[in-house]
Nucleic acid binder design. Sequence first.
RNA 1: CGGGGUGUGGCUCAGCUUGGUAGAGCGCUUGGUUCGGGACCAAGAGGCCGCGAGUUCGAAUCUCGCCACUCCGACCA
Length: 479
Amino acid sequence: MAKEKKLVEAITPINEDFARWYTDIVMGAELVDYSSVKGCVVLRPYGYAIWENVQRILDGMFKQTGHENVCMPMFIPESLLQKEKDHVAGFAPEVAWVTHGGSEPLAERLCVRPTSETLFCEHYAHVIHSWRDLPKLYNQWCSVVRWEKTTRPFLRSREFLWQEGHTMHETADEAEAETLRMLEVYRRFCEESLMIPVVCGQKTDKEKFAGAEATYTIEAMMHDGKSLQSGTSHYFGDGFARAFDVTFTGRDNSLQHPFQTSWGLSTRIIGAIIMTHGDDNGLILPPAVAPIQAIIVPVAQHKPGVLEAAKALEERLRVAGLRVKTDDSDNTPGWKFAQYEMKGVPLRIEIGPRDIESGSCVLVRRDTNEKVSVSLEKLESAVAEQLAALAKNLYARALENRTNRTYTCLTYDELKATAAEKQGFYKTMWCGDEACEIKLKEELEITSRCMPFEQEQISGVCPVCGRPAKKMIYWGKAY
RNA sequence: CGGGGUGUGGCUCAGCUUGGUAGAGCGCUUGGUUCGGGACCAAGAGGCCGCGAGUUCGAAUCUCGCCACUCCGACCA
């Protein structure tokens, strides 16, 4: 009993205070540490390793779609940032400025990039001359800075890591297709690697990216029913190209502006993983990005043969291509169990004298806590099966949560009552007028999440104003 | 940027009301016994009480200012 009490004290229960639970997990699983600059966190080895796995998988997908990585400067001269007026209006309030070099004031202050559209455009103007130079399919992995007022690890920090893809195309159709193609890459990554179901759709004009013609999003629902924009893809038309004077000679020998896209996914996705899959015992990591996919815990490791047996399992699984570790520290097995549950390791492998005698080991799934004893001969296949089953279950659980928390509302009163009582997606029709969107934000404190690609005709009218509806839309509260 | 909370060994906090030798638990180090759900015993190390001014013979404690972190809102990826 005393032991159980201690376990509860270690992490705030998820349904008691979700925000505190989140902070407990982030610190307890050793993902981050705070630094002396507000909103700038240290990504510790375990947290950074998750990001490295995200990078590796996504980068592979980008290579398959023909994108090349580049590295842009981190400073943007003020005059360059100001060339596209919607863009600068959107970002100006939250940029950090460099005003001095050493002790000398700079002739022109430099902004620390909040995003790199302007830098890419300046560069594209130099390297794009002919339709034969198109498309340009670039991506960069970097950090950007946005001087947020309040901050939370992964969800909202002043400096964060991300990738930003920036492409230029000969035609509008081609650029629009690219925008949607990359959104689909994000969807596949989230659903197939992270086991997070997402709603794909378009943002309203109010919520779209500063300077974009259209913004598309993948929205994920967290455990508590709040929404998290997990990746975005923007279509710019030729607006930036015009503002930055990017031109090329077309097939018909006329001077034209290329059409542009950009798309990004950040370390915020780690917040999504935590808040989608975690539970009262800690983090649960999808196997594809787990730094350790299986943790081997030797039991009674001082007894002859135990550690050797554990190391033999580790070696076999490593050869089979798994990220695996043996914890041979002198902490007790119980301590190790709790520790790796906190860190979200998908599978635990216990091996002790009893197992060695019977030629087996014990596998324990992090999601269900199910224990199975497996013959050592079948180790590799059993581990693979358990990991696959866990991944499948993570997706199913997350989808179930989203389904249970998606509410269809036909009238304003119904929407008001639901938004007041239940956290989730509120599915309604919408007339398309921003006035209705603003009203919902002011009166019900909900914002539009997206207009899903998969549309349904759930009624004929907008519940806010009663006029004919154009689209089905999801509303919610967002992180 | 608005509202709340908190700053005391690495961590969680007590002490402050009523000024007078800086404490506890956990963690850490060393040695020993343990090991199938957060072990136990013993001996140690470790603090300019967030920072700066005041008041006072004397400040962790009282006064003023500042800073940081954190939570809840508004905004973003």
